[in-house]
Design a protein around this nucleic acid. Structure first.
Length: 739
DNA sequence: ACATCCTTTCCTGATT
DNA sequence: GAATCAGGAAAGGATG
């Protein structure tokens, strides 16, 4: 009932506003002014119809001021500058407002004077007003500005989607003055949040008018201006499918080798260097130190069926068809779509790659070494003779069948339909969770089985030829390529034999995230790779930190890690080693307990607090800015940040959001309003840790993540939701999140 | 070599 | 006081 009343009152308000503005546009006669003024008053003060949205306030504010001005001027027969009533004049708006709001006070009733005073405060109150989520039941209905404000006619040519996007609370974070001053304002400009106006909240403070004007007028202060105004030509760039040329493919090629029922074979696309190496990169980048551009002729040959767009599409996805957004949308629509792209970009660096020997040990620990025998050599002809990356969808289906049989399933009893259309390249790009998302019951089994094959591939001569000579073959395993690598079997530190799905359920609950230590000391994701994976840790440094990590695997991993640290995977190993050592030294001296003669990256014990305390002896007034060492530096070699398009933060967040895994959504992220792309971090630090896992940066925090998120404001990928913590909104350039 | 992109890191100050 | 937000500044790595 209350809501109905509210809606009615809002409707009345909007109706009144429309009337008001229409009258103003036709330059109302003096006789109309009192009525218009009444409408204005009703809108603002008497109309207790919930606070108007900032945009409405702005419009009505302008209207009222203009009406008051007319009312004031006309009886005095003062010349009326034409522009004063036709459109708000950006350049003079603050001054005009100030002047014209002063003058009526002499003649208006005290109540109206008070109203005007309130209006002035409202100018800067826009940030105080929106405290609701767009689309929520309490949200104000969006205004169609095109109908009520001629100065916004530029938007008429824009798509309804964008118009709607312009009508949100976020954009309304601009003050009335700003709004009026920027008749042609790109969305990028509009969404970039200005610095908070210290006087913006009239409910908190009641600053004097001059202070308000000074603080909030862009003409007088730059403090509240958008951080990075972009050319207004961006207005014309509004389009539903705006995509960054660097991050997205912009079109859906229906004839492409699609994720769903790909029409293999297909004419291989002409690939440039990057493209031709893309598969190799995606296959091997996390496993090699290829620098992202190493040509792998054999592999390229073997992967002839797999085409990539070498031009423009550097999103890191197999361009077997749609861009990522389409992929996701398709995934939402049908079962035949392969969620390869879900985490495709999350190439894992080499530090998570376990040498085959260690993998074997891990499998042995898991009691599955017996299953590792010659699986690659068995099975139907076809897939056995190729590297998994070169498997066709049919090969994959045969392989699925083989694995099922190997695991004791009656032939035909398992349905692999969810993997229909998946080729080997896609499979090798899928992480454990990807498999589970596709096949909750057996995803882990598929993942492990493929991992075993890839392990065997590392020693296969034909596969070995695919690998650059300077790359250790051990690195060719899928685990390091897992999108969510902490779920990899090599790092599966959970109960042996535990069903991964259950395991996820058990550990991806809100409660279980309690074990996530912000300082990174105890980040216990279910299958989180050991901290040693990231660091050249002295084994004892963190031993036992993860309850999921068994001593046996710990030792093995520690050995791997130390070995990794001491031997670079690059041809320039020596240089790299020295580089590592230097960084390690810094790390040790700065952040770690230098108790060990071995070089230690102790990110686990790193925290800003500790760092500060460790340098307490000579604490400068302001901490000398020394960038923390990057323990993953050597491990990132070969990983292409930009070559792996799709590895962007916003895509990662989006993938979490569109994930149907309830352990991710809504446990750690959730939609607030999916239609409008509004989402919220439920477990902000957990998200940050997961992001850190993806980027092999164990020091990632939500603070850092959020900084990166805020950078997306400029690029219109994300938009802030003012007044709501941990809430963001996808912008026009963010694709793939719509259902 | 250089510019650019996309973060990452650190920071200050404000807000909740 | 902690968490979060906003954004400047600097830097790094990859790419074109």
């Amino acid at each position: 009932m209350e809501q109905m009343k509210r809606r009615k009152s809002l409707g009345d308000a909007l109706s009144g506003m429309g009337t008001l503005l229409q009258a103003l546009e036709r330059r109302p006669s003096a006789s109309e002014l009192p009525a218009l003024s009444r409408i204005s008053t009703d809108l603002f003060v008497n109309g207790q119809a919930k606070p108007l949205s900032p945009m409405q306030q702005c419009l009505a504010n302008v209207a009222l001021v203009a009406a008051s001005q007319q009312h004031q001027h006309q009886p005095q027969h003062q010349p009326q500058p034409q522009h004063q009533h036709q459109q708000p004049q950006p350049q003079h708006q603050p001054q005009h407002q100030h002047q014209h709001q002063q003058q009526p006070q002499q003649h208006q009733q005290p109540q109206q004077q008070q109203q005007l005073k309130q209006l002035k405060q409202l100018d800067c109150a826009v940030e105080a007003a929106p405290r609701r989520v767009p689309g929520s039941p309490d949200s104000m209905p969006d205004l169609n500005l095109n109908n009520i404000h001629t100065s916004q006619q530029q938007y008429a040519s824009n798509s309804p989607v964008l118009i709607q996007q312009q009508q949100n609370w976020t954009q309304q974070s601009y003050s009335c003055n700003e709004f009026n001053n920027q008749q042609v304002l790109s969305e990028a400009e509009r969404i970039v949040p200005r610095k908070r106006c210290p006087l913006a909240n009239p409910l908190r403070t009641a600053p004097d008018e001059s202070a308000i004007t000074a603080a909030c007028s862009p003409a007088q202060s730059t403090e509240c201006k958008p951080a990075s105004a972009q050319p207004s030509t961006n207005v014309n760039c509004f389009a539903p499918n705006i995509s960054s040329p660097r991050t997205d493919t912009t079109s859906f090629h229906s004839d492409s080798v699609g994720f769903s029922n790909p029409p293999f074979p297909r004419q291989p696309q002409q690939t440039n260097m990057a493209a031709s190496s893309s598969c190799a990169q995606q296959l091997s980048a996390p496993r090699h130190s290829s620098g992202g551009s190493t040509m792998l002729p054999n592999l390229q040959q073997n992967l002839g069926q797999i085409s990539y767009t070498g031009n423009g599409n550097q999103s890191g996805y197999y361009n077997n068809g749609p861009n990522m957004s389409n992929t996701w949308e398709q995934q939402q629509q049908g079962p035949s779509v392969v969620p390869f792209a879900t985490h495709s970009g999350y190439l894992q660096p080499q530090q998570q790659q376990q040498p085959t020997r260690q993998k074997t040990a891990t499998f042995s620990m898991l009691g599955r070494s017996d299953q590792k025998t010659s699986l690659y050599q068995r099975g139907p002809a076809g897939w056995t003779s190729k590297h998994p990356c070169a498997w066709s969808p049919m090969d994959c289906q045969l392989w699925f069948q083989s694995v099922a049989e190997d695991n004791g399933f009656i032939p035909g009893s398992l349905d692999f339909g969810m993997f229909e259309g998946v080729n080997g390249a896609m499979l090798t790009r899928m992480g454990c969770i990807d498999f589970i998302m596709k096949d909750k019951a057996h995803g882990e089994m598929w993942f492990h089985a493929l991992g075993r094959i890839l392990d065997q591939c590392t020693s296969a001569t034909d596969i070995g030829q695919l690998i650059p000579k300077n790359e250790p073959t051990e690195n060719l395993n899928m685990y390091g390529n897992s999108s969510l690598q902490f779920l990899s079997p090599a790092n599966l530190t959970g109960p042996v034999g535990t069903d991964m799905s259950e395991y996820l359920q058990d550990h991806f609950s809100n409660d279980e995230f309690d074990d996530i230590d912000i300082n990174g000391e105890a980040v216990n994701f279910p299958c989180q790779p050991p901290l040693q994976d990231y660091t050249c840790l002295n084994g004892a440094a963190v031993q036992g930190q993860s309850p999921y990590y068994t001593p046996a695997s710990f030792v093995a991993q520690a050995q791997v890690s130390s070995s990794f640290c001491s031997t670079s995977q690059n041809s320039d190993g020596m240089d790299y080693k020295s580089d590592m050592e230097s960084e390690s030294t810094r790390s040790c001296s700065t952040y770690s307990t230098p108790s060990s003669s071995r070089l230690v990256y102790s990110f686990g014990s790193y925290s800003p607090t500790e760092r500060s305390s460790s340098s307490a002896d000579s604490t400068p007034p302001r901490q000398v800015r020394t960038r923390a060492p990057k323990p993953e530096k050597q491990q990132n070699k070969g990983r292409s940040k930009h070559g792996t398009r799709g590895n962007h933060l916003w895509e990662f967040i989006r993938d979490l959001l569109v994930s149907k895994d309830t352990k991710l959504n809504p446990k750690i992220v959730k939609w607030e309003n999916q239609e409008q792309g509004v989402f919220r971090f439920v477990e902000s630090e957990a998200v940050a840790k997961m992001w850190g896992e993806k980027k092999c940066n164990p020091r990632m925090t939500y603070e850092k993540l959020s900084r990166a998120m805020r950078y997306y404001y400029k690029s219109n990928i994300l938009m802030p939701v003012i007044g709501r913590r941990l809430v963001y909104r996808f912008g026009a350039k963010a694709t793939g999140w719509r259902v």
